[in-house]
Nucleic acid binder design. Structure first.
Lengths: 196, 196
DNA sequence: AATATATGTGAGTAATCGCTTACAAAAGTA
DNA sequence: TACTTTTGTAAGCGATTACTCACATATATT
């Protein structure tokens, strides 16, 4: 029997979680199914994570370190406002496209389990992204790039709907959804809102 | 013991489903919990619905007859384009606010169960709404109310994100989310996109 | 080489799931 | 009133869930 380090197995397990979610749906995310996908017994899963919830929490933390931290750097960079927003937005979209199960896990599981820790972590990510976004827009308004009269909070709410609807379209329209130009097309609509 | 007609019980059961979803989360939507909420035994539930899935399907059909049919009338009415879109949009938002569990049920359950019939019904609603929306926008463009250069499909995608993010905000920010002016605030952003 | 530690397995656990069944009794009908 | 139909209950069904445990063996350490 093959033996691998905890770090390697943890990565494998988390990868398997996202694959199951995006291809088979959240309902199929049982520990039995997960173990089969990784190619180990159920007991082995519990060698590397203390509970199923712990796996999900670890994945959510990955989102923070792999996406939000990156977005933070973009928000604090020296780019021109419109390019900064575009880069920020596309980073998010591309991350979601390459980690298809993430949004479902975040939103669906949070509303499904009503688990307070899970919700807290999700809220932390959402609030961080919203804060960064508002910072970018406020900066663009104050330097004259964008219209002074738009409400930053409302814009942020509208913005946050895009990643979610992207994921829903990917799940429901699996085959014929074209997400290559999705980022550019949506950004051009956002720009129309912001322009003076 | 109290005896009520099937029609009354079905309505009670469907109401209880939405209440459980919006207050306790989808995970708590067990037949046991549901029966307790209605105030009957589990067996009684199965007197009035042949399966749990049947209850959910019936709720989804209610969305069609109570919301989509109504939106269809608005789309085919004689209103001025901007007022038509506003009415169409607000009808949808208000329906979701008064039926808090609906969006979670629709999107979360569809991605959760991977059930084909459920997905089909959901897609039917989404596509109907999208088609009506595109019809309204196309009409507004052709009569000169709105900008010719905007892509109707992209606009529809952006639009559909709003109801979803509304529901997520309601679930996650239960107390401090103000949805009274939500409709007006979001609509003013949509108008900025459409204006010539 | 001897020992300790880390990673694996297979068979189990109690709890919960959606759902069924045998039976009781209220409401409708003759 | 006698009978049928409808609506209810209590108990329990097999299946599945997340998870545990006794045990085996590969790897690291001494």
């Amino acid at each position: 029997m093959l033996r691998l380090s905890t770090e390697t197995r943890q990565a494998q397990i988390k990868e398997a979680v996202l694959e199951i979610i995006s291809t088979e749906g959240l309902a199929k995310l049982s520990t039995k199914n997960l173990a089969a996908k990784v190619g180990v017994s159920e007991g082995a899963i519990y060698r590397h994570f203390k509970s199923k919830k712990d796996i999900l929490l670890s994945i959510i933390e990955d989102v923070y370190t792999n996406l939000v931290v990156n977005q933070k750097e973009i928000a604090n960079s020296e780019m021109v406002s419109s390019i900064k927003l575009y880069t920020f937005f596309c980073k998010q979209i591309q991350y979601l496209i390459h980690n298809k199960g993430i949004t479902i896990l975040l939103f669906s599981e949070a509303t499904h389990t009503n688990d307070s820790i899970l919700k807290e972590k999700l809220l932390k990510i959402l609030k961080a992204q919203k804060t960064l976004l508002k910072q970018i827009v406020a900066e663009g308004i104050s330097n004259g790039s964008w219209n002074k009269s738009i409400d930053i909070n409302d814009f942020a709410t509208l913005y946050m709907g895009i990643p979610v609807i992207l994921n829903i379209e990917m799940v429901l329209n699996k085959e014929n959804f074209n997400h290559e130009e999705f980022c550019n097309r949506m950004f051009s609509l956002l720009e129309r809102i912001l322009k003076p």
